[in-house]
């Protein structure tokens, strides 16, 4: 464990907490894409298949449980909670995420470290996470008023992966033959997709104005 990875995991945890706070306290999911939340639930399910078979550390297991539990809770809130679901904008959140899942699955079947079920699912989870934010970014461009919590949620979600890239650089430098091209390439694509959001988020923070993405 290194400071980059710990900060990254805490940033990721913070993003989930910010979103749960928004949904649980003000009972609203306005501006949040259910499609992205569903994709993340799938990402964690496919990535943590080894939660019962490979014990790495208490930290690792606890964090896996937290990410699985929170991602499914958020999907449940947005789909079934009688108050929260009313603020879900299904007419705007129309990204067909199955068109993201299929190519990722095919790619995972073609490019993986070992052709086993768990390994292909693990690889699929990285390819899928790289593009999981797309429905949310599309929704942001459609909904004019982005509230602060939503903006913070997306910023933290993007920042966690950027911090993981620092972690991978650190581990590549300090650990002999630590090479994992699949997470590295996926994480790079994922972080680049946040590029313009980070730019507009920084502008809104610098000029102290409301966050607005160009249409």
């Amino acid at each position: 464990m290194n400071i980059f990875r710990l900060t990254a995991d805490m940033t990721h945890l913070m993003s989930v907490i910010v979103l749960l706070l928004k949904i649980h306290t003000i009972k609203s999911c306005a501006g949040i894409s259910l499609k992205t939340q569903e994709l993340y639930a799938i990402v964690f399910t496919c990535r943590y298949l080894d939660i019962f078979t490979d014990f790495i550390s208490f930290y690792n297991t606890i964090m896996k449980v937290i990410f699985l539990w929170t991602s499914f809770s958020i999907v449940w809130y947005m789909r079934y909670h009688k108050i929260v679901r009313r603020s879900y904008d299904k007419d705007q959140d129309t990204f067909r995420h199955v068109f993201l899942m299929l190519p990722c699955l095919v790619l995972a079947l073609l490019i993986n470290e070992r052709f086993t079920f768990k390994e292909v699912m693990w690889t699929f989870s990285f390819y899928l996470e790289a593009v999981a934010i797309l429905p949310q970014l599309v929704l942001l461009q459609r909904t004019r008023n982005i509230d602060n919590l939503t903006g913070q949620y997306i910023f933290l979600l993007g920042a966690y992966r950027a911090l993981y890239i620092l972690n991978w650089i650190y581990r590549y430098v300090t650990e002999p033959n630590y090479v994992h091209w699949i997470p590295w390439m996926s994480g790079l694509v994922q972080t680049l997709l946040y590029g313009d959001f980070f730019y507009y988020y920084f502008l809104s923070w610098k000029n102290n104005v409301k966050l607005q993405l160009p249409a």
């Binding site: 080894d50 964090m63 993981y164």
Partner: peptide
């Protein structure tokens, strides 16, 4: 014996 590289990251 191919040591299974531990997937120690989340």
């Amino acid at each position: 014996l191919q040591v299974q590289i531990k997937k120690d990251e989340l």
